[in-house]
């Protein structure tokens, strides 16, 4: 297996605070890596650096051999990186179907003729004329939306034409993941996909993510529900205060004294607890 993503000494400072201390991270093709850590550990900041929503002050980020640190997020997305957001960012006034279709944006071909300098104009013309090739492409994507929605059982399929703001919180999280999948990502970044979900919904999400993993999807996950992390991850990185404090197989990381200290406190708990 080759390295799909490689971060070297990635650093991000906000004023005097170092949100991400020089951190290394590698992710191989097909691997499932989780990042855990208490609130404020710098996990989401690290995600933002990888997806281009923030620019590191130092260090390199390489995706499939290409240095991407500082690149615009839309260019990184076009390279095959999809992500979800911590608090869920669906397009509230759009239907579930349109939300998912937006995810497939960078795969549009027929409607975006390659004309140097006039690409935007040609795209406008194609949208208005809608020649058969464009119509066929839309139809194919619409068909794909049905397939992606079907991954979530009957949660999304009956609601494809409802506006996203009318969905339950859990369904909005599902829409976000469906949208990310429509990008056919080489690398999928999931930021707390089960936040705000109850136990049943969490279990359901776990099996969906497990299904993605079984298909060979490379996944980088931030998650607080450690049981889920333990079951799915090939490898776990624990962060605290902007730094990596442990890395390795899930159960090793969970038992690591540094991790227990990060979660429970700097003084040791009573012996019975340990």
């Amino acid at each position: 297996m080759t390295d799909l993503l490689e971060c070297r000494a990635v650093t991000r400072r906000f004023g005097g605070v170092i949100a991400v201390k020089p951190i290394d991270l590698t992710l191989r093709e097909g691997e499932f890596l989780s990042i855990i850590g208490p609130n404020g550990a710098g996990k989401t900041t690290l995600f933002n650096l990888i997806s281009g929503h923030d620019v590191p002050d130092d260090g390199t980020i390489v995706l499939e051999g290409v240095a991407i640190a500082g690149r615009a997020p839309e260019r990184i997305a076009a390279m095959g990186l999809a992500r979800t957001f911590q608090h869920g960012r669906v397009f509230a006034n759009m239907s579930v179907r349109d939300n998912i279709l937006v995810g497939a944006h960078h795969r549009l071909r027929a409607v975006k003729p390659r004309l140097p300098g006039l690409g935007a104009l040609a795209e406008l013309a194609m949208a208005l004329i809608r020649p058969p090739a464009v119509a066929a492409e839309e139809a194919a994507l619409n068909h794909e939306v049905l397939e992606i929605a079907a991954l979530f059982g009957d949660r999304l399929t009956p609601r494809l034409d409802q506006p996203a703001h009318s969905l339950s919180y859990a369904n909005r999280r599902r829409v976000e993941i469906a949208r990310a999948l429509a990008l056919r990502p080489r690398l999928l970044l999931l930021d707390e996909p089960t936040a705000g979900m109850n136990e049943t919904e969490t279990a359901e999400m776990q099996s969906i993510i497990g299904g993605l993993k079984a298909r060979g999807q490379t996944i980088l996950l931030i998650e607080h529900k450690l049981d889920l992390v333990m079951r799915l991850s090939d490898r776990v990185i624990a962060m605290d205060d902007g730094a990596k404090i442990a890395e390795g197989p899930p159960h090793t990381v969970r038992q690591s004294p540094a991790v227990i200290e990060a979660y429970l406190g700097h003084r040791a708990m009573g012996e019975a607890a340990l």
Partner: peptide, 19 residues
């Protein structure tokens, strides 16, 4: 509470077997 193993479970997940 400081000696109660359930505290640790509340933070680190369901499995409470001692290390």
């Amino acid at each position: 509470l400081a000696r109660d193993p359930r505290i640790r479970a509340a933070y680190l997940g369901g499995e409470t077997e001692p290390a």
